[in-house]
Amino acid sequence: MHPFTYAPVADAAGAAARALAGAQFIAGGTDMLQLLQENLVQPQELADLNGLGLAGITEEQDGALRLGALTRLQKAADDPLLRERCAVAAEALAASASPMVRHMATLGGNLLQRTRCLYFRDVSTPCNKRQPGSGCSALEGENRHNAILGGSEHCIAVQPSDLPVALVALDAEVLIQGAGGAERWVPVEGFHRLPGDTPEIETVMQPGDIILAIRIPAHATRWRSHYVKARDRASFAWALCSAAVALRLDEEGRVAELRVAAGGVATKPWRLMRVEQELLGHRLDRDRVRLAAVWASEGAVTRPGNAYKAPLLQHTVERAILELGGLA
C-alpha cells in the first residue's frame, strides 16, 4: 500500500480539483480498500466524497426516478419507489454482495467497481488492464470468471457489478459533472467501454469527472422488470451470469417494448438486442422465449474455463423472461 493523504471534500468542484491534482475518490470504499491493500492503485490522495450529499431516491416531475450517486446499495434496494417501479434494479441491488457491503457501497461506486479477474487482482502476474502491454494472463489461464462476450486479445475481464446490468435494461442514464463544472448525461449502455487494445480505459469518465446521479426515465418506470442471477453460492458471490429484463406488453399481450441485458459474461453490461428483436411484437410463450434466448450467446468466444457460460447465459435469459412473463 502506497502512502497517501486523506482529504474530505465539501463540494464537487473541490473534488474535481483534487482529482486533477492526482487524488482518487473514495465513497463507500468497499472496492477502493481492496485496491489499496493489494497495491493495485497508488493514489497520492484519497478524496472522500461522502460529504457531498448526493444520496436519496426522488421522483422527478415527469415521473423519472433520480438516484443520488452516494445512495447506499441497501437503501436503494429497500426503496419502495424503486421496488415498485423498477423491480429489476431493486432485485439486482438485493442480489449484490452481502448486507454489510451493501450498507457501505454506493451506487456511483458500483458503476465504477473494478473487475474481479484473478490476474488483475494479483500484482505478481501480467495484466494489460493493470499494466498496459504486460499481456493478458486470463486468456490461457484460470478463466472461469471471465467474459465470453466483448473481449479482445488484450483483455477478457468482466465488469462485475449487478446494478448496471439492470440499468441498461431500464434505459437509464448517468449524470456526470465534468472537471469544469458542466453536467452531461451518458446512457448506462454507453458508460463502460469495450477493452479493445486499451483495457486500462474502462469507462467514459474523464479526469475530474464525478458521478452525481443515475436517472431511470419515466417510460421505463412503467415497464415490468426482473433480474435473475446465477452464482456459485446463494449469497455474497459475483454473478457467473445474470439477466435483466424490462418490458411492456400491449393490450393484446404482445411485447411492445423490451430491453434485455446480461451480466457476468461480458466485459461490460451487455445488451442483448437480438433476443429483444426475436420477441418484439410477439406474445410470450415458452417455445418462443427459449428460441429467442438461444441468441443470447451469439458471438460468444469461449475458452475451456468459461465455455459453460454460453449455455448458462441462454438459460438465465430464458429464466428471467419466463419468470417475468409468468411462464416459469
Partner: peptide, 10 residues
C-alpha cells in the same frame, strides 16, 4: 484455482 504457469493459487 491453480495456475500452472505461475505455480500459484490465483
Amino acid at each position: 484455482e491453480w495456475d500452472a504457469r505461475f505455480g500459484k493459487v490465483m
